[in-house]
Amino acid sequence: MVNYISANYIYPVITPPVKDGVIGFEPDGTITGVYTKEEAVELNITDIEYYEGVLVPGFVNTHCHLELSHLFKKIPQKTGLPAFVKEIVAQREQAEETVLSAMKEADRQMFENGIVAVGDISNVLASKVVKENSAIYYHTFVEVFGFDRPSKPIIDNALSICENFEPLPASIVPHAPYSVSEELFTAIRSVTRFKDILSIHNQETAAENEFFELGTGQFAQMYERLGVQKSTYHGNGENSLRYHLPQLPQNNLLLVHNTFSTKQDVDFARQQHGFVFWCLCAHANLYIENNLPDIEMLLNEDIKITLGTDSLASNHQLSILAEMQVIQEHKNISFDHLITWATLNGAKFLNIDQQYGSLQVGKQPGINLLNIGPDLKIGNHTKVARLV
């Protein structure tokens, strides 16, 4: 049996919006057709359920830390990244049942917020039980870090975690340029498979670039406190992107945050790597650094942008709609761009666009209803209802 729904606009994303269009779908969510109002009449399609608003595909959250969900409202805001990381380390270890309960609630929240797929950072196996019982598609990024430790034990442990995540998809990724040595990057390359997708926190704070360019600042102080020796890359006059990007394989790569990335960085990335996606986590950027990336510049550069929520340690909710809201509140970005970032681009990065990211026949992308008017402005009043 095919069900039919209609709204003021349908946004297939892959094609122009359809005013008063109709979507047909099977009980399992497989789309059977996207029709204009006139086509639906010609095909004698009846028993259509009508909604006020805009129908869009399910959202794709390309950057999350499900493991940190128990730190909701535990970390002070606007302290800067080094202080934020220090708090994460200090408060992360909690009772297993506390961590598991918080992850389940975060997964439920994302599902209700219309999220159908997530790229999730993990350091341990704890989230597997939640992911394998979730209606959401998860790709797990098993994150490694180490600047002064032998790389083999780090990689061996990451490989063990990846294997234990099976049959769920997982890949080994570096944490950030300031926490991964040249040797560890080499080890990551050695275990990266052709099908793997990669992620790295990039230029989230001005202190990161300062550390690489000048060898000074908060990360230099952190190294000193920990007794870690700086490398020749720290203070060599070039920023962090120029350190890590040439060391990463030519797989789909997500640069996360990019709060202090410039046009020169975009140009460098374009020259160095053919499969780069740029993830914006606006609420987390404001929560930690009280700053936003140069989103207009990134848009004008015509690069592939995705959206992420980061974690409940650095956000008030796990909602891609909320990320769209805060971007539209601070920047003049059109709905067309925002919805593409929130759906199709994320699906392309995760290599799941054959099923997710757009309203097309044969796909099971999920269908969300946004209660927005013909001006297509996302405001604080905007809500998402997951219909399929």
Rank of each mutant, 00 (worst) to 15 (best):
Y4R: 03
I5M: 10
V13M: 01
P16L: 13
T30G: 06
I31V: 05
V34R: 00
V34Y: 00
Y35W: 04
T36Q: 05
E42D: 11
E42T: 04
E42Y: 08
N44I: 08
D47C: 10
V56K: 03
P57F: 08
P57T: 10
G58M: 14
F59S: 03
C64D: 01
H65V: 00
L71F: 07
F72P: 02
K73F: 04
K74F: 01
K78M: 13
T79R: 15
A90G: 05
E97L: 06
E97K: 15
L100Q: 09
M103R: 03
D107E: 11
F111P: 00
D120Q: 08
S127Y: 02
V130N: 02
N133F: 02
A135T: 08
Y137V: 06
V142H: 09
V144A: 12
V144E: 09
G146P: 06
R149K: 14
S151F: 04
P153W: 09
I154L: 09
N157P: 00
A170S: 15
S171F: 10
S179Y: 03
F185H: 06
T192V: 11
F194M: 06
L198Y: 05
I200M: 00
I200W: 02
T205L: 01
A206N: 07
A206L: 15
N209G: 13
F212W: 01
G227C: 12
Q229T: 07
Y233M: 05
Y243E: 05
P249L: 06
S261A: 13
K263V: 10
D265R: 07
Y287N: 10
L299R: 08
T306K: 10
A313M: 08
N315T: 03
S319F: 07
L321A: 12
A322I: 02
E323D: 12
E329Y: 13
K331Y: 05
I333A: 06
F335T: 03
F335R: 04
N345E: 14
I352L: 04
Q355P: 07
P374F: 03
L376P: 10
H381S: 12
K383F: 04
A385Q: 14
